[in-house]
Every structure is written in structure tokens, then in C-alpha cells.
């Protein structure tokens, strides 16, 4: 799980152009939206693309997305649970 979390941090920084943010700056339990990393709705769409492109996972239910993209850890758990890690 730790290796997947580390990989996700790097992928998210790259995919979302988070200039000036390093993997160490992101705690796996920080909220990605709102007060945490401050991501917006376009970033959410980029995360959906990231999961599909890198892990072959399609998120079709928007309600499900809110839970999956809550933190880096919740994304990692979703990938692991769906056997794509």
C-alpha cells in the first residue's frame, strides 16, 4: 500500500501540474479537495482520467467518485480493492 501511495502522489503531481508541490508535502490522509490540497472540479476530471489511463479503472457513478477521491489513501484502497495495484 505504501508503494502505491508514493506512486500515486507522483502521478497526481504530474497529471495536475502541481508546480512547487513535492510528494513529501502531501499526507496520504489529507483531504484532496477544499481545505486540503485545494483541488477543483477540473482536477477531479483529471483524476478520473488518471485512474483510467494508469489503472484501467472507470468511475461511472459520480457519487462513488466523492468517496474514492477523498484522500490519496482512499484512492489507493480503491485501486487495491479492484485488483489493479
Amino acid at each position: 500500500m505504501d508503494a502505491l501511495i508514493a506512486k500515486l502522489k507522483t502521478q497526481i503531481i504530474e497529471q495536475l501540474n502541481l508546480e512547487g508541490v513535492s510528494p513529501e508535502d502531501i499526507s496520504p490522509d489529507d483531504s484532496l479537495f477544499g481545505e486540503g490540497l485545494g483541488l477543483d472540479s477540473i482536477d477531479a476530471l483529471e483524476l478520473i482520467v488518471l485512474l483510467e489511463k494508469n489503472y484501467g479503472l472507470k468511475i461511472e457513478n459520480p457519487a462513488e467518485g466523492k468517496k474514492i477521491f477523498y484522500t490519496i489513501r482512499s484512492i489507493a484502497e480503491y485501486i487495491t480493492a479492484n485488483g489493479k495495484a
Partner: peptide
Amino acid sequence: KDFASPSLFV
């Protein structure tokens, strides 16, 4: 051609 980028689209 691959995965359409939402952040470029805007």
C-alpha cells in the same frame, strides 16, 4: 487520440 485532457479542454 488517447485520453482527452479536461484541463486542456477548458
